[in-house]
Design a protein around this nucleic acid. Sequence first.
DNA 1: GTGTGCGATGTAACCGATTACAGAATTTTG
DNA 2: CAAAATTCTGTAATCGGTTACATCGCACAC
Lengths: 346, 346
Amino acid sequence: MKPATIRDVAERARVSVASVSRVLTGAGAVTEPTRLKVLEAVEALAYVPHSGARSLSTSRTDTVGVILPDLFGDFFSELIRGMDVAARANGLHLIVSSSHDDASDAAAAIRSMRGRVDGLIVLSPHLDSANLAHSLAGRLPVLLMNGGANDAGRPSMVVDNVGGAVAAVEHLLGQGRERIVHIGGPSGNLEASERQAGYVQAMTAAGRDPVIVGGEFTQASGHDATALLLAEGVRPDAIFAANDMTAIGALLALQDAGVRCPEDVAVVGFDDVPIAALVRPALTTLRIEIAETGRRAMDRLVALIAASNDPQATPDAACEIIRPTLVVRQSSGRPQSSIAFNGETQ
Amino acid sequence: MKPATIRDVAERARVSVASVSRVLTGAGAVTEPTRLKVLEAVEALAYVPHSGARSLSTSRTDTVGVILPDLFGDFFSELIRGMDVAARANGLHLIVSSSHDDASDAAAAIRSMRGRVDGLIVLSPHLDSANLAHSLAGRLPVLLMNGGANDAGRPSMVVDNVGGAVAAVEHLLGQGRERIVHIGGPSGNLEASERQAGYVQAMTAAGRDPVIVGGEFTQASGHDATALLLAEGVRPDAIFAANDMTAIGALLALQDAGVRCPEDVAVVGFDDVPIAALVRPALTTLRIEIAETGRRAMDRLVALIAASNDPQATPDAACEIIRPTLVVRQSSGRPQSSIAFNGETQ
DNA sequence: GTGTGCGATGTAACCGATTACAGAATTTTG
DNA sequence: CAAAATTCTGTAATCGGTTACATCGCACAC
């Protein structure tokens, strides 16, 4: 027994397929008796419109895609959460494709989504992915979130990584820290290089020498980098890590080495993932409202899609900047002094 | 300018649409010169097949859906990660729909996916959602992961929550703990009630009185429940929490109250989310290989879909049981004795 | 009673792929 | 070299919706 089609419904309800379609799409006037007959038939036959057929005649898919990089953990689950809520509110379905660890991998994902989505949100913090994404997407609306400065002129949302890093360094300096080391992110990652640039800029402005060690945006890399620093006899009084996971690794390495935080070494992260408030000492970090950012991105994509169907709409090419806010917690308390904890537990 | 269709490609390559289709789908023999002409035309026109049209004629969508509950954090991002990898390996796209906090909400999501996916994975830890999902899905293949005992006879994967809870309690008893309190999960959540049942069973078997306080699977609820316990003067020497987030909340509440863990109170969680190893003391918990479970679930769904197109396939109705393994970390060390840390940092 | 207007309904042409089938081209075989 | 077998190619039907347009019926006005 094959699934019911609109013709089966029309036959059972003794009306035309046009009337069934009108009832189901809500477009076009239908009398109440007709409406009820149709609904009865739909119910009785457990009819569900074939989305492919609908997409064929309307040339819409009511689906949007999200391309994510290989990183994982709280950050992306929060982001998807926000996007999913906004998508559902707009009657859209969300196709996700994650774990794209380089530009060509992401390109393949974009290609395979073309033709099956009405729009795309691309997170791909690799050099030049902005141009890549647009050339691959063709006329498909795309919202970029790849932290690249080269997104200007394209609809995009970027985090002010430089500004955030400067704020982090200035906060540490303001607390009396002097020897601030930066643990960087993966090379080739735009966000990471911007955060590093902000660090260098703020350090230089304060007349200090920047000291940078490598990291990979992971907890393990933060741990290793910190352990290596200590083993080499480098004694920073503060560590600014490229993201929260790295910072948490640093915290643990300090603890393992018997170095006190924040008394001996302060630690600051970036992102404010949910765990940041849960580790001890709770992590000072730069907060990005992740879910809210996802929601906002989806809303903009929806607007882009609407505009693409309306020739006289003014194109949205804004590069929206998300400014992270400094959240001070225990890990950056003043050195050698007992500080009041803010008591935050979630 | 409208997107190119298969006819445009055929025209440019000076072949028929059938040949173009054969080249692109790989089905049917085509001579090399024809193939090259077609590929050239596809390239030149940036042609992408219309997925709706394809789906209409093949009655496949090459898309699967995942329905998730409202919980968030590491657990679900890991799970989706595993599913996404397996889906892509099978040439499928993944539609996710999360944040369904009750059965009717999940039902709406299932309805809206019908007709646009070839199969569904449903995580909905609510009573009776198994039957609900199947009745809504109609003939759509569905793999259930809702931790319900009533999934038997339906293709499903369930965690052995009872067994895990028993293992947790026995471990604590074996460490010399005597007054073990359980912080439960949300009422109406099947996983939570099974974990609680396992706790009661193991305590009763050991001749101890079970003591249960309420929780919500969240870090905040674990914190509050523990603080309340302590305020009421209840002095457990161990806490078994319904999941890791709750356990982490408990750890923090103990710390805030100046109660030592594991010296005074041991804590055990459930799930082994990535954070569990990162908190201090590192959390003893029951490990579920989350990403692997997601991958496996997707593979089974793929098999179900294949079987549904093949009338003589034997139907898979197995209820696969995932046995969590106890991972002992610092938080359940022996009371009053200095213990060797296992040094795990990730 | 006829004409006018308007809202409800039905008919049929699309949308863009796949594929059964027929026919053409090629190769194999006797 | 012709016949048979095989491989390749093209035509046209089909999938299941939406929607432009034609038609129908009814209320109302004159």
